[in-house]
Design a protein around this nucleic acid. Structure first.
Lengths: 135, 135
DNA sequence: ATAAAACCTGTAGTTACTACAGGATCAAGT
DNA sequence: ACTTGATCCTGTAGTAACTACAGGTTTTAT
């Protein structure tokens, strides 16, 4: 089916997706990316399908999905029925995670800002940041 | 100097700082936490100084400082002069990191929200989230 | 004295890659 | 056909900051 002008080396796949060659191999080991055919000499021969799949993986990673979440999503891509709802749930759960992380970081941000603020007021010989932390 | 009623086991130290016993050992291996004296049988005997130091480490970790940043801060705690400025710089640099992370996560949040939004509109048999990601 | 709790060391697992080492193969030019 | 340089192959080890054993010793409480 996929035959004409449809062969990519690992390097070409890397270039067109922005995913490093070594990482592509890693995804294959993980079972995330389908194992491609091999040349007589053992080199991997990828197709347009791999390209599509890898682009999907990269996008999901950029959105902060973990490998196993992506694995789940790829599994759902095949199973039709009910899968849409599952995808939505996975995405929603991930959104919650992201929001919690933001909350934590905001708390850190406030504390760090406060620590630095102490410095501006300061004129004592001791470091006020250390004073607060090392109490 | 530190002698009376001033001996803690690893477990006691763990309980009073909220840092797990195994993690305490890890910090010692890292060189973060000073190696304590040992009993005849080889058990670690901590002092109030260790308690103080470990609390400092825990606070810094909660604020997102890396181990090596904390190592740096602890080094500065001794060296007096100029160290306050260094502490402030380390803290400021860390604050920038935290803010960048927040920015990234916000971008993720927006995208995820958008993806989920697609679902609410949707009535087609295909999953709109997958459609967008798997394009 | 005995038994349970806590401790000891060293090693391996976690996540998502990245970076080698030491070869083999491929593609292009002559 | 041959050579050369780029790319590819495998397997392993390293990264950050822990966590979790296994298999044994010590401490503490009764």
């Amino acid at each position: 089916m996929t035959e004409l002008g449809n062969r990519y080396s690992r390097g070409q796949l890397a270039k067109s997706t922005g995913v490093k060659g070594e990482t592509i191999r890693y995804y294959e080991n993980c079972g995330l990316l389908d194992a491609p055919a091999r040349s007589a000499g053992g080199h991997r021969i990828y197709t347009k399908d791999h390209l599509r799949q890898l682009k999907f993986i990269r996008r999901c990673r950029e959105l902060g999905f973990t490998i196993s979440e992506i694995d789940g999503l790829l599994g759902l891509a095949d199973a039709q029925e009910k899968s849409c709802e599952q995808v939505r749930l996975t995405t929603a759960a991930h959104l919650t995670d992201v929001r919690n992380k933001i909350k934590d970081l905001r708390k850190m941000e406030r504390s760090l800002k406060e620590l630095i603020g102490q410095c501006e007021i300061n004129s004592s010989p001791d470091c006020p940041i250390m004073d607060v932390l090392f109490s």
